[in-house]
Amino acid sequence: MSAYRIAHVTVHDPEAYAGYQALAPKAFAKFGAEFLARGGAAETLEGPALQRHVVIRFPDLVRARACFHSPEYQEARARRNGACEAHVVIVEGVSEPSS
């Protein structure tokens, strides 16, 4: 069953955040991630307004977790340290109803 990583990010230091953006795609590719939404127009309907919203689909929850904890992603994450405010969750998708 697919899993989704949902991130809401406000960037405070674009130059430092660029280091994260340069490295993170390698980790996502390694674990079969597919970007469904990345930045773009957004409207906050409830809660705090953050700049960027990202939705990434993984083949399953195991790979979503493994990606986050991988050395590749942790290196990228270290590059954005202090450069942004991020709220990141992973959630398992729903199963398709049987026909």
Rank of each mutant, 00 (worst) to 15 (best):
R65I: 08
F68V: 07
A27P: 04
E72N: 07
I6E: 04
V89Q: 05
S95C: 08
S2V: 12
E85T: 15
V94N: 13
E46C: 10
G47I: 05
A66Y: 10
A42H: 03
V11N: 02
A16K: 15
Y17Q: 02
A33E: 07
R65M: 08
S95D: 14
R63H: 08
V89K: 03
E75C: 03
V54R: 00
E92F: 13
A86T: 07
D60C: 10
H87A: 11
V55M: 12
F58K: 05
R52T: 07
V88C: 13
Q74Y: 04
A18P: 09
V62I: 11
A49T: 15
H8C: 11
H69K: 06
F28S: 02
E92M: 07
H87M: 12
I6S: 09
A7V: 12
E72F: 00
A16N: 04
A66C: 03
A86H: 00
L36V: 09
P97Q: 13
A3K: 07
S2D: 09
F58Q: 00
K30V: 02
V55P: 03
F68G: 02
G32R: 13
A33G: 04
V11K: 03
S2T: 14
F28L: 08
E43P: 03
Y4Q: 01
E15G: 02
C67R: 03
A24G: 02
E15F: 00
Y20V: 05
A66R: 12
H53T: 14
L23I: 09
P48V: 12
K26G: 01
D13A: 01
R65F: 06
E72M: 00
E96R: 10
H53E: 00
